[in-house]
Design a protein around this nucleic acid. Structure first.
Lengths: 243, 243
DNA sequence: CGAGGGTTTGAAGTGCATCAAATAGTGTGG
DNA sequence: CCACACTATTTGATGCACTTCAAACCCTCG
């Protein structure tokens, strides 16, 4: 399994970057791969957490269910993202449920391996800190967005974070998953999403054809979305597809 | 300065728990204490982060300002809480501004000391991980609250987290800081806060006299607030006054 | 082609924000 | 100890954003 390509992939993941060959081997020896179709449950909220996961391909949603049956999206992740690892620092159960939202390929590792490695190899602990710090920053900016941005601005901000931050002027992208799912990811109803996206057509100059979206002018869009926010585009390090 | 009492205080802080005397000394040697009056700025968003802080007494608010001049509260912290330390994993600048909201006493430590210690003493890194994990969980539940709870429920939830989770039946508490500040902490306007608190009188059975609040029946309050949430009272580990 | 999920649109309702003004509370100097 | 200034809090009236409920539309895939 540890082909050259595979190792190259692993080294792109912050958790594994800069590790000694010995430590890296401990992880690679423990890795199992799983191919999933869309809609497979990986684990449930409050289940005992024996494994953590890394996505090699596809999208996974993390979510919780409220007592009255609604679903609250925690995050939606893709390639190179890791999840389920925080159970180590909790009571040993997952703080959310996880389910694929597209076909996907996923690496599975025992949490015990990670826990052990973090305790014996300082570099592992430092890498974990870096990863957790990234997610924390992302969460913190999400809290801000929820309180200061309205629906069209949140969508625009979401679209901008799908773009290459180097890009200038016009850019075309396609939505990574269902509009319905994006809606709940952004804390709004699907109808609100649909209407808010329409409003972006006139207010921020975008074109929509199904899941394909063209932003006529990144700068116009950025001005429209970030005016209510404490950090302006390109919101450094907050790309949804980063580590 | 390192009196017995002071050392006892330090050991209550998760970052310092279980450290070797040598490592602990590195920190205690570098600590400076500062007494603040209400309303003092400690540092500003995006300033170079040379120090991190631990509160020994009083309350501190972390916040960011949006481009159009609004203030978004990141968190409001008290005794034993630590802040400013995440700059280590960022670009070396603070991700928020900090200001006291009551008279306060604060410990100041160089971030370089922490950074060095985390790299040389694995226990420091592990303690940091534990702390960061706690904050991450708290943030994550806050995101959920913002999307699934309405204003009265968010206030009720806030009040419950001020209570002793062991308590049963009736309990009296007083608000730790301004209602205005609680309002923005919970992502609502002061008028909304005032009205929502009134509604809790009839809907969840509380009494309000200025900043003193009596919850007639914890269980009634919990039922009222947590119905929309994925975790019910006592939301383990989410007390606002914990580590 | 037809079924089913995803998406859009319309009409109506709710919750929170906004603007404005009154009231309560707090600290200050006389 | 009181009057004043200033801030915090409450209350009222109104508007907007988002939700809800309902129905139509669209697209894909068997």
């Amino acid at each position: 399994m540890p082909t050259k390509q595979f190792n190259h992939f692993l080294l792109q993941i912050p958790l594994f970057s800069g590790l000694s060959p010995e430590t890296l081997k401990i992880f690679t020896d423990a890795i199992k791969t799983r191919k999933c179709t869309r809609g497979e449950a990986l684990f449930l909220h409050e289940e005992d957490a024996s494994f953590f996961y890394i996505i090699t391909r596809g999208w996974v949603k993390l979510f919780r269910e409220t007592l009255d049956g609604d679903e609250a999206i925690v995050d939606i992740l893709t390639t190179r993202h890791m999840f389920g690892e925080t159970a180590i620092f909790e009571d040993g159960t997952y703080p959310y449920s996880a389910e694929t939202v597209s076909d996907a390929e996923i690496l599975i590792l025992p949490t015990s391996t990670l826990e052990m490695a973090a305790q014996t190899d300082n570099k592992v602990a430092l890498n974990l800190l870096k990863t957790m710090s990234f997610y924390r920053k992302q969460q913190s900016s999400e809290i801000e967005h929820l309180t200061v941005q309205n629906a069209p601005q949140r969508i625009g901000c979401f679209l901008l974070r799908l773009c290459d931050p180097e890009a200038q002027g016009s850019i075309t992208l396609h939505l990574p998953y269902d509009k319905m799912l994006i809606a709940s990811r952004l804390g709004m109803k699907k109808e609100t999403f649909s209407r808010a996206l329409s409003r972006l057509k006139t207010d921020a100059g975008i074109k929509v054809h199904g899941g394909t979206i063209t932003i006529n002018d990144m700068q116009v869009m950025a001005d429209y979305c970030c005016s209510a926010c404490s950090s302006s585009f390109p919101c450094a390090d907050l790309k949804s597809t980063s580590p």
